[in-house]
Amino acid sequence: MSYEIIGITVLWLFLYGYLIIASIDFGAGFYAFYAKMTKQDHIINQIISRYLSPVWEVTNVFLVFFFVGIVGFFPSTAYYYGSALLVPASFAIVLLAIRGSFYAFENYGSKQSNIYMFLYGATGLLIPASLSVALTISEGGFITEENGVVSLKYLELFTSPLAWSIVALAITALLFISASFLTYYASRANDHAALKIVRKWALFWATPTIIMALTTMIALGQHNERHFDNMLDLWWIFGLSMGFFLIAMGLLYIGRNYGSAFIAIMLQFFFAFFGYGVAQYPYLLDPYIHIEDSVTNEAMGIALIVAFIGGLLLLVPSLFLLMRLFLFNADYAKGEK
């Protein structure tokens, strides 16, 4: 396998990791706000904050990892995406900054206020929206390059059905992923009252998620035929994704094995996300960045892969420890530790 393929696979894997854990985090923020508004917060907010407190910083790293890695493996992405995304990415930074630091201020500093809960919930939905602009423009047709100046065509972007479908898909998917994770976590903690609420949310958000996935497919078919056709060729990957979705729905509906249900949802998104990514090959930005032309020199490619393996040897056991201590520790989840 050539190292640009290894590179993009690794990066895609991290983006997928970010998608899952950021969804849980962003969704949880929104649910915490929603629960407060509907006066259910005394039931579920303890579950949410016990999960979030030790991991909020780790979530951020997945994102940093992705954008540092992609510039390292494919330096031309810095030029095109960097130039075009100045405004949306800056907004994403500001939202992330508000969210991350407010979390610390509130949880370690003072009592929870309504304004803070609102900001925390709202930024959680706006961040995926602003980040998904990058996915939209990778389909091509949204940027121009004149006299060496790369700029984003805002009018096209804001009137594009594809852009809005991707935003809507990102938001519905994150609410779905988050609710199903919280369902698992509540069952783990034996918290039946919370379980009842979050399970209802998970079942509710499943339908719009699937509808938006189909809508996005249609919009993509109109916008970028090459990508769409590639996806049709990979129909079995999306079939697998659908299959895992049905398994998850079944388990959530009968109300048992929430852990397996969540794993099925992770697999559902894994296949959908990888199928989407593989179909985009060989472009990182249609048609400006071709994966083979834009890859960094060989020496750096190898160095990055070596660094990556070394890093994983360090990270995997540490992440495992973190999960054992907090995520999969029933006593901790129940609030006894």
């Binding site: 990892f65 540092v68 510039v71 390292g72 031309s76 030029y79 960094t296 660094a307 990270l315």
Partner: peptide
């Protein structure tokens, strides 16, 4: 911001300094 504000620099230097940036993230 390195990529947003200095895109030309990162395009050039990304080839040479990506390693320490990557390790910093680790």
């Amino acid at each position: 911001q390195l990529s947003l504000v200095w895109p030309n620099f990162m395009q050039l230097a990304g080839n040479v300094i990506a390693l320490p940036l990557f390790m910093e993230v680790f």
